[in-house]
């Protein structure tokens, strides 16, 4: 049994994610729940869910590191870190040869270059709109009257794709409605939407300087349509971890573990010297 545990909490705009690690860095469990605008409550819920699931007591959790849009409002945290640092760390822990991370979350997208030793290099985030993010897909699913989870399969099985010229969520919505009015089939529209996101993210990634191997993280990495278009446009394979959504929380947990180890080392040095 582990002497202590560390928790990583990623409180995003769409979902709250938690990962529990033991002292060796082994990931015991994770939990994901929709945020629905209640950041503090959802953070508490994923935390309790994971503790109940593993039977680990709250006192045994030695550090809680938070990240994501709601990182600062979570109470009883040890430290908060940005998603850039946590996604990079999580991706590196999952696959140490990764040099580039594309993270598409609920309301932003990021491209991060990793140094060979896993440190964050240059990075870019999307500008002030929801284009090219999970929210964009959510709005479009609603407009099309389909479920968000259906979109990926629909897109990859469609031979045709509609040309969506606008990546602005508001304009794209009217464009989609007008395409449907012209008799365009829904799968083609969905494929076109996935392509629009990929194009947008391509611009972001190019500014950073695309360097393979590339890992894709965040909820949108579960959408096969976007992944497929991205690998076509970037002409690179996208590595998708088994649970792309929890990479930020995992990275946060690992950073917490490293902090504890570092402070233990310091303590040891002090005890040895006295």
């Amino acid at each position: 049994m582990s002497a202590y545990y560390v928790m990583g909490l990623d409180i995003g705009s769409a979902t709250a994610k938690a990962v529990l690690l033991d002292e060796s860095g082994y990931s015991l469990a994770f939990a994901v729940r929709p945020t629905r605008g209640r950041l503090v409550q959802s953070a508490e819920e994923v935390k309790q869910e994971i503790l109940a699931h593993t039977g680990v007591s709250e006192e045994a959790v030695k550090a809680i590191i938070t990240t994501g849009y709601g990182r600062d409002i979570v109470q009883n945290k040890t430290k908060s870190l940005t998603e850039i640092t946590c996604h990079a760390r999580g991706a590196y822990a999952t696959m140490p040869n990764i040099r580039f991370v594309i993270d598409i979350g609920g309301q932003d997208s990021k491209a991060i270059l990793l140094e060979p030793d896993g440190q964050v290099g240059r990075f870019e985030m999307n500008d002030k709109c929801a284009a090219g993010t999970g929210r964009f897909l959510e709005v479009m699913a609603r407009t099309l009257g389909i479920h968000l989870d259906e979109m990926g399969d629909m897109a990859i099985h469609s031979e045709k794709y509609s040309k969506i010229s606008s990546t602005c969520t508001v304009f794209a919505e009217s464009e989609v409605i007008s395409l449907l009015a012209q008799g365009e089939e829904i799968p083609a529209v969905v494929s076109g939407l996935c392509r629009a996101i990929a194009e947008r993210v391509y611009g972001l990634a190019s500014r950073v300087g695309i360097t393979p191997p590339i890992m894709m993280t965040g909820g949108v990495a579960k959408n096969k349509g976007v992944v497929n278009w991205l690998s076509r446009i970037l002409n690179q394979e996208m590595i998708i971890p088994p649970e792309p959504q929890i990479i930020g929380a995992l990275g946060a947990g690992i950073m917490g573990l490293e902090m504890i180890k570092k402070s233990n080392e310091k303590m040891n040095i002090i005890t040895q010297n006295t």
Binding site: T82, E83, I84, T85, D108, Q119, V120, F123, M125, K128
Partner: peptide, 15 residues
């Protein structure tokens, strides 16, 4: 958004 970028950048500079 700007605050988030600054935080991430400073984490990078510090490390």
């Amino acid at each position: 958004q700007v605050g988030n970028r600054i935080d991430a950048f400073m984490e990078r500079v510090a490390s």
